[in-house]
Design a protein around this nucleic acid. Structure first.
Lengths: 315, 315
DNA sequence: CTGAAAGCGCTTACAG
DNA sequence: CTGAAAGCGCTTACAG
């Protein structure tokens, strides 16, 4: 492992000169020295030790995102991808940790002394406190005001189904629900909107994605499905039951995933634009002087309908 | 941030005693001391600094998995999940990095001085050398002998389609292929097997998953699809073209994903058992005394057919 | 314009 | 049975 000392030796300068020059504080050195040091670092393939640096600084440049989802959809994956790019732009390193049921595993991230921890799901109350007490910025329910967004999703599903002329609505949720986030809020959003606008609301359909099940018997209903996978599974049930989409039954999913586009019929779905919350997040992390508060910015949920063949055209 | 020194003070012992006891070397201390130290650590919520520890040890207990896939399927996600659990069992911390096209981002992991880097995809040749030179164990093409496994997948698809009585075979690959790993090897595996056994091999079908396309015109053919998503998309094309599955056309995917099970018809697919290679990997990382070699263990690819409704029953 | 020194938190070989 | 000391690689305030 090549250390700063070796770079210093090769360039014929002191250890501290190397440190300063490589960190961009070149103003106190001659151009010649600066070049020599940079050259030496390049030739040796020097990478400053994260350990040494963060020990000295008391904080590292690592941001850890804890992914709670048991399965990551394209939406979330894109988000996490882009977040990484945004963070890289401001010189931060983005790492993912798969959330485990074990506290020990989760707490291991404290050892890293990350600048911030972003959680895509809920954190046990104790852990949040532990992080905060360690001076780690915590951004919880990271997909920004998750609850509000989930409600908006449900509302938009309901309003689309209403506009498309389905007189009744049934939410569809996956069971067992371990690992699915926001089921309740999406369902409540759809249900409440439908009630407010005089749609008939049928009992929630529960679907076990692991089992193929042919039973389905509710014509002229719009199904507000938890996500595109659930929607696809419902399409299968509906077909097996001999009902037709979108005439007898409308199906709307969530995620604007590949599945929605490649399915036949294609699935009407909800797209979440998470860009705003991402920007807000990076802002907050970088300027994070209130490390013991959760993200105070709740940008307006930005959700839109992507029309597919699984619902009638509105209007 | 609570340090070992604070624990020592609270327990009324020296800094080194804390270190030793918390690392399990309790034999040189009285039970009473051990308990007092552990108590103090617990009360204070002490988490040893990763930076301090790895600085001292010269190596950290972090294993970084670089995920190359532009989209993570359930198969890969499960694998990564389980790998994390396996590593946790031996006291290692598993972190994910989303592979970026930027070398700077990728090389940032060197700063962490990880014990090992696991790559689900190919590494640029330069980077591999850089890692190895830094004494980092590199496990490349992590899904163990990726090439061999991909070939086996293709072969198994072909042999299943053959047994199911389809006289011809056409591979189906997604385009543009950025982000899809192993397309060539799977295709070659299917093609070669088919040729060897006297199946007629049709030109490869290219499908753009982003576009809905109705053209399809090859009855009595078995389609060896790159993965379940591609298979689902082909089902759509076939239905739109008025052909029937599995009578006119057989479709077999790869991944044994949820999609295969919830689709109507359900999709015959290939399941990859990655457990063996995972175990081998952990072994190799833990006992890694040859840090500059790639994983020497190439466990036999373990792939099986999961029969769905999208192909005729074999035999 | 540049270097010597201190100290971040940790572990380990050594001294008592 | 326990503590004092050294040193991992880094950065920064200070001295020249």
């Amino acid at each position: 492992m090549v250390s700063g000392a070796e770079v210093a030796q090769r360039a014929g300068v002191s250890r501290s000169a190397v440190s300063q020059i490589l960190n961009g504080h070149t103003e106190r050195f001659t151009d010649e020295t600066v070049t020599r040091v940079r050259e030496a670092a390049r030739e040796l393939g020097y990478r400053p030790s994260h350990a040494g640096r963060s020990l000295r600084r008391g904080r590292s440049d690592v941001v850890v995102t804890m992914v709670h989802e048991r399965a990551v959809g394209p939406q979330l994956w894109d988000f996490v991808n882009s977040l990484g790019e945004d963070l890289a732009e401001v010189g931060l390193t983005h790492l993912l940790q798969i959330a485990s049921p074990s506290d020990a595993v989760r707490e291991a991230v404290i050892g890293l002394r990350p600048l911030a921890v972003v959680c895509t799901g809920p954190l046990p109350p104790g852990l949040h406190g532990t992080f905060a007490a360690s001076g780690i910025t915590v951004i919880e329910g990271a997909l920004s005001a998750r609850e509000a967004m989930d409600r908006s999703i449900g509302e938009l599903q309901a309003s689309h189904l209403f506009a498309a002329g389905y007189p009744a609505l049934a939410p569809v949720r996956p069971v067992p629900d371990a690992g699915y986030l926001g089921t309740a809020a999406r369902e409540a959003g759809a249900r409440d909107w439908a009630v407010r606008h005089g749609m008939r609301v049928l009992p929630t359909v529960e679907i076990d994605l692991a089992a193929v099940d042919a039973s389905f018997d509710s014509p002229d209903v719009g199904l507000a499905c938890y996500n595109d996978e659930v929607a696809l599974a419902m399409l299968g049930r509906i077909a097996r039951a001999g009902r037709s989409v979108p005439d007898d039954v409308g199906v709307v999913g969530v995620d604007d995933s590949l599945i929605a586009h490649i399915s036949a019929p294609t699935i009407t779905t909800i797209r979440l634009n998470l860009e705003i919350s991402r920007k807000a997040m990076v802002q907050y992390i970088v300027g994070g002087d209130e490390p013991d508060e959760t993200l105070p910015i709740a940008p307006p949920p930005d959700v839109t309908v992507v029309q597919g063949e699984s619902t009638r055209l509105p209007g």
